[in-house]
């Protein structure tokens, strides 16, 4: 075998081995690489109260209630829901029907006490007029809800 050919096979073999190794490592650490759990993940996992974790999903429309500086809302992945309460400043993009990632602890009654709230936006970019027109004509498909559905399918695998 010519040295060039030998080096070519060596590099290809090395890259393939490396790819397989990386795939194995990443799937082994799957749980640590997930940035947040969905309400369905929480329902599945029986998390003990008091452990810090992140919970993500959509803020259920009509669920936001303000009680002084404390906000109560429901996080949903359209399959399961979790009650969340949070005291502090919410990000600009925190809106009903939009994505959110909260960090905090599960309480004994199954609700979630958040110490941090981050807004998660979807990959849809539209001018305001176009979004309004779509909503007015009834053609609006909520990008965030689609994404949450895809997300929960993804984590169910």
């Amino acid at each position: 075998m010519k040295p060039k050919r030998r080096r070519l096979y060596f590099v290809l073999f090395g890259m393939a081995t490396l790819g397989v190794a990386a795939a194995l490592v990443l799937s082994a650490f799957q749980d640590n690489l997930v940035f947040f759990y969905s309400p369905s993940d929480l329902a599945e996992r029986q998390v003990e109260p008091g452990r810090r974790l992140r919970l993500g999903g959509l803020v259920e429309a009509g669920s936001v209630q303000r009680d002084g500086s404390t906000v109560h809302f429901t996080v949903t992945d359209l399959a399961q829901t979790v009650q969340v309460s949070f005291t502090g400043i919410l990000p600009d993009l925190f809106r009903e029907g939009q994505g959110v990632v909260t960090e905090g602890t599960v309480q004994r009654d199954g609700s979630f006490l958040a110490s941090d709230v981050l807004a998660k936006h979807d990959e849809t970019y539209l001018p305001k007029e176009v979004a309004d027109a779509l909503k007015a004509s009834g053609q609006w498909r909520d990008g965030a809800e689609n994404q949450a559905l895809e997300g929960s399918e993804g984590t169910a695998q």
Binding site: F35, L118, E123, L126, P127, G151
Partner: peptide
């Protein structure tokens, strides 16, 4: 962004469906 839950949103342009960005953007 597709394999794991991330705070970062998924791709808008290079995806199998049409881009999720309005032509003006």
């Amino acid at each position: 962004v597709d394999w794991w839950n991330t705070l970062h949103q998924p791709a808008s342009v290079s995806r199998l469906a049409a881009p999720a960005i309005d032509p003006a953007m």
